[in-house]
Nucleic acid binder design. Structure first.
Lengths: 358, 358
DNA sequence: CTGAAAGCGCTTACAG
DNA sequence: CTGAAAGCGCTTACAG
């Protein structure tokens, strides 16, 4: 029967390490932090002893932090990052997006030996949590995802820690750092693919315009339509009335309304809903892809992808990674970069659901 | 144009507070931590000054931690909890479950002024992250979700910090602390509901038995079937061959195989798949609920629920909350409790999809 | 009920 | 290239 431990054991300290390696604590510390003043042989000896006595997992986090706080040194701490998950009135699939982002961010942070502190902000009073983390010096910066606007950014700036926005935002006033997806490019990529197959009448169906990405996608769709010389019938890019409930009768109605020239391809620009649309199309006797090609949008991490439809994929975990790296740079560089933006490109995965029109 | 701050301002210290409140740092510290030795008037004065000068967000996390490490005092720190998200070979909807758990845990932790450090463990080397967090004293305990088994538990125990398992586990060897859902009760609740409506032939369709909860649910189904005096035709509880792809033809076939006495109600015991089953049933001409009542299983946080089917709901965020509270008790109590288990009850939400059989 | 002082385990300016 | 010593901002045993 295993007896559960209740107290942490006395940990191996830097003192112990120094004694065993026959150097001063100064040298031991400097050696572990790869300071150039330490002779290579010494550094290696210290590293070897650290490994042997189990110090390789690092020094006391609290002591290191406290000691470093004395100097405004070159090496600013980058130990903990607050990941703010901003929950707005609209929720829905944001959760999966958040998780994918967080996953990527955590991966990058772990490699930098930093960790991710999760903070869910929904109510007004949740900001107290954020303030506490800043004022008690728990975190060194923020990653924030959700419906970020100017008010939010000001709030974060007041805490005097840098932040990087993950995904789209509605900030107009100040410069911000952000990592996002080229959503106009998503629609363009989808169009280019089916246009190359010979389609000319291609419809966009997507959600209501609650999110920024949905607007961008539709805008991108409309301009790509024009630039690629495709049919620009406004009904092809209008809001599809059936989208919310995917009722078979309304889908049928929508198709019938096109009369003699229905779309030969559909780009469904909302996360994880295309599979259902496919079932519905089939249930009303539409042959996919023979009659209508179908192209999907997958906004998730790489290993979520189980669909075998043709689809445009956006790398949300990569976005999280990039945002974390960006924040690391901002925190440690201390450079004068006021704003920065990384925009990730989508990729197309060819599946069975798109063919040339007959 | 806002200029982004790069360095933290000099923070308000306990010294500052003590000076302004005309007490010693000792008294200030004790007052803030509600130590009984401090006179009530003094405590209030200190609190008022803290509020005024902006110390109310708390002391330096690192300094407090370091100072407390000296004594094995009654008040063990409970500042940061590591949330281990164990990603096994099987993934899928675990992500949504994880997020709901995490959400609940974060909520409870925030109220305890603690925060949640997210750690995703997938590869073997990810355990180094976990070890580092333990050895550097970043976290005071663990919450863990995923496919937990004896090997994992041993690994965590070696780190000498307590942990609580969220959800089911496959641990046989030692005593553990866990918070979970009564999944046998989920199936029973579903059966009781439709049995009360007068159904006797009720089918269970669910996923393959990869997860512990799936086994428990089917077992619960079978015993409740017997105890409620329902039809125990083994085909009603056998693995439904159509479940993975939900192909309409196979669903049709499955129903036809029952011959003259098909089930009058179906309990679909897998997370978020019932809506699709409903569409499929309708597409093959089955009238729900007139011909077949349908009852669903929703394993998610409260605000995910958008379905209006009759469904059994399990409170995953509440499970996260309970696990966090349990861990807090274990860490701060230091009592002799070796193992504990909280089992949360599901609830039934009556929707339109179940009626008495005609 | 209160305060002066020691000390937590590191980092780093300073003096060799 | 190295080490003795100061100090980060708290908590708390100890002495009033």
């Amino acid at each position: 029967m295993v007896s559960l431990p209740r107290h942490r054991q006395r940990a191996v300290t830097l003192q112990d390490l120094a004694r065993r390696a026959k150097v001063s604590p100064t040298t031991a510390s400097l050696a572990l932090n790869d300071h150039p003043r330490v002779a290579e042989r010494t550094r290696q000896r210290v590293a070897a002893v650290a490994q042997r006595i189990g110090f390789h997992n690092g020094a006391s986090y609290a002591a290191r932090r406290l000691a470093r706080s004395r100097t405004q040194s070159r090496i600013i701490s980058f130990d903990q990052v607050g990941f703010i998950y901003l929950v707005g009135p609209e929720k829905g699939d944001l959760d999966l997006v958040c998780l994918a982002n967080m996953r990527g961010a955590e991966h990058a942070l772990a490699k930098l030996r930093a960790c991710l502190v999760f903070v869910r902000v929904e109510e007004r009073e949740d900001w107290e949590k954020v303030e506490r983390l800043a004022y008690t010096g728990v975190v060194d910066g923020w990653l924030i995802t959700g419906a970020v606007n100017d008010a939010i950014v000001n709030r974060l700036n007041a805490l005097r820690l840098p932040h990087v926005i993950l995904g789209d935002h509605r900030c107009a006033r100040g410069p911000v750092h952000c990592a996002t997806i080229n959503h106009a490019g998503v629609a363009r990529l989808a169009l280019e693919h089916v246009a190359a197959l010979g389609h000319r009448r291609i419809a966009f169906v997507g959600g209501s315009m609650r999110y920024v990405y949905q607007e961008q996608m539709r805008d991108g769709f409309v301009s790509a339509q024009r630039e690629l010389g495709l049919d620009t019938d406004p009904r092809l890019s209008a809001h599809a009335p059936f989208w919310d409930d995917l009722d078979p009768h309304r889908v049928r109605q929508w198709l019938d309304d096109f009369g003699a020239s229905p779309p030969t391809a559909i780009f469904a620009g909302e996360f994880r809903k295309t599979e259902l649309l496919l079932k519905v199309l089939r249930s009303i006797g539409v042959d996919v892809p023979r009659q209508i090609s179908l192209i999907s949008y997958e906004a998730a991490a790489n290993d979520f992808q189980v669909s075998d439809l043709t689809r445009v994929v956006v790398p949300l975990d990569e976005m999280g990674r990039q945002a974390a790296l960006m924040l690391h740079k901002i925190v440690t560089d201390g450079s004068q970069v006021e704003s920065s933006e990384i925009r990730l490109a989508p990729t197309l995965i060819q599946g069975w659901s798109t063919v040339s029109p007959s």
